[in-house]
Amino acid sequence: MEQVQLTLTVNGTRYSRPVEPRCLLSDFIRHDLGLTGTHVGCEHGVCGMCTVLIDGQTARTCLTFAVQVDGAEITTVEALGTPAKLHPLQQAFWEKHGLQCGYCTPAMLLTAVELLNNNPNPTRNEICEAMSANLCRCTGYQTIVDAVESAAAAMKGEAR
């Protein structure tokens, strides 16, 4: 199949790659770039596992063709923190037990990043509203909300 040249920035690194026009962004990120922290759960746009930030906004990469994001800036979970130096959201998810199997976690983290970028001081209801976009089958969600609430407080402390 014919390929087109795609140029984009992922986690601060610029890539230029030939891709098939039908290649999903989720597959491009996972298999072409090897950034497997972005997961795939349903491939029909409901579960939210494949969420990344495209120019700062959350998007479902299983419903996005790679060629649609030519020139865009993508952020995946790999950009947040490392096991040795976790991002405050990752630290809060760890402390509040906001994950079990970990499969939905990257998407949950990026959704929370977007929320806290737009609203550094969210109410619990606002957190629930934002985080309800993604499914989690393990936690029952409560500790995910706790984690985002706690991270928001911690990040405000850092900013001060």
Binding site: T36, G81, Q90, F93, G102
Partner: peptide, 19 residues
């Protein structure tokens, strides 16, 4: 105790089957 599994899962380094 905080889970020892978590740091790798939190940072997208879990290595599930499709990875």
């Amino acid at each position: 105790m905080k889970r020892v599994e978590d740091p790798r899962l939190l940072t997208g380094r879990g290595k599930y089957i499709d990875d």
